[in-house]
Simulated scan of single mutants.
Amino acid sequence: MDEQEFMRGRVYGADHDDAGPRPGRTYAQLVGGPLDGLLLDMTDRSDGPSGEQVALVTEMGRYGPGGRALYAPRPSDGRRYDWRGDVP
């Protein structure tokens, strides 16, 4: 199993031992870019699943450790956040 396949269905930022989705939580799917296939927990975000762009820390993006991948909600489906690029 390669790294991308391993990460699918996992929650961004969750502990590796308990990275699956939890009942009662709201998630958006990250689409494209270095975090493709991960789920973003939107439960405690005031903007909800259809909010503004988010910058998520990742070691796999263009800028390596400490860089961020930008994701924005898809206009037609706020449960999916599309990759917009990487920033330092």
Rank of each mutant, 00 (worst) to 15 (best):
M1Q: 15
D2E: 13
D2P: 12
D2H: 12
E3A: 11
E3P: 00
E3F: 06
E5L: 09
E5R: 01
E5A: 13
F6T: 10
M7D: 14
M7Q: 10
R8S: 09
R8Y: 11
G9D: 13
G9E: 12
R10M: 05
R10Q: 09
V11I: 08
V11W: 01
V11D: 08
Y12H: 02
Y12V: 05
Y12C: 04
G13K: 02
G13I: 03
G13P: 00
A14N: 10
A14C: 06
A14D: 14
D15G: 11
D17T: 13
D17Y: 04
D17N: 05
D18Q: 14
D18L: 15
A19D: 15
G20C: 12
P21I: 01
R22C: 09
P23S: 14
G24F: 05
G24W: 09
G24C: 07
R25T: 10
T26A: 14
T26M: 11
Q29T: 10
Q29F: 01
L30I: 03
V31H: 05
V31E: 09
G33M: 02
G33H: 00
G33I: 00
L35P: 06
D36C: 11
D36R: 09
G37P: 08
G37Q: 11
G37W: 10
G37L: 03
L38S: 10
L38R: 06
L39A: 09
L39R: 08
D41L: 01
D41V: 09
D41G: 12
M42F: 00
M42N: 03
D44C: 07
R45H: 14
S46M: 11
D47N: 09
D47Y: 06
G48R: 00
P49I: 15
P49C: 11
P49A: 15
S50C: 12
S50R: 09
G51M: 03
G51V: 04
E52W: 05
Q53W: 03
A55E: 15
A55T: 07
A55N: 13
L56N: 02
V57Q: 13
T58M: 08
E59G: 14
M60C: 14
M60F: 12
M60L: 15
G61D: 05
G64C: 14
G64R: 04
P65D: 06
P65R: 13
P65N: 06
P65V: 02
G66M: 07
G67C: 05
G67I: 06
G67H: 07
G67D: 03
A69S: 10
A69R: 02
A69W: 02
L70M: 01
L70R: 07
L70G: 02
Y71D: 00
Y71F: 05
Y71K: 01
Y71L: 00
A72M: 01
A72I: 00
A72E: 07
P73K: 00
P73S: 04
R74G: 07
P75A: 14
S76V: 08
S76Q: 15
S76M: 06
S76R: 12
S76G: 12
D77F: 02
D77V: 08
D77W: 08
Y81I: 00
Y81E: 03
D82Q: 06
D82L: 09
D82H: 05
D82Y: 13
W83S: 00
D86T: 02
D86S: 03
V87L: 14
V87Q: 15
V87E: 14
V87I: 14
V87F: 11
P88F: 11
